[in-house]
Amino acid sequence: MLHTFVALVEDKTGLLARVTSLFRRLNVNIISLTVGGTETAGVSRTTIVAEAAEDRAPRIMASLYKLEGVLDVDDVGRHSAVIRELAMLKIAADQSTRSDLFQLAEVFRARIVDLAPESLMMEITGSASKIEGLVQILLQGNYRILEMARTGRMAMRRGHHASQVLEALGDTTPRIDPKTLSGALKLEDENHA
């Protein structure tokens, strides 16, 4: 089955290599991996989607915790969580097919972010199945997908849940600079199925 882990790690060189090396050593295949900033300076957040038997999750978590610099691990797949992925698709399109694609984008709440004479680029955010749904429709409609880039999943538990470890470390105050927030806020109320 697919497991979704969120690991908060110290933002240090080499830590990502330690995390991926661990999965290789445990003989567990990583399906996707995202890394980025968090509410705390110096702490990165990784979302790891991995394929492994159901009962292996505790050992994977325990092993992640053994890595120096791993602060918190959560098996978010076991909880109610919002899971999102972003994809960019470059699709062959000329004047005759463009409007159909615009409609399709509308239905999927994707956005057209680039337009060229022979192609256009769509950006779509949502669950993996929504992205795969769009891809399937495109292929069925005989559109040519010239390029596709997917971020892999990001996940966050619903409701008031915060990292117990960071709380224990007395480090819960968000340290985000409000100025950097403006762009991010737009995504907030998007309500994907």
Partner: peptide
């Protein structure tokens, strides 16, 4: 002492 050894 090592949680990763439990049920391994």
């Amino acid at each position: 002492i090592d949680p990763a050894e439990i049920n391994k």
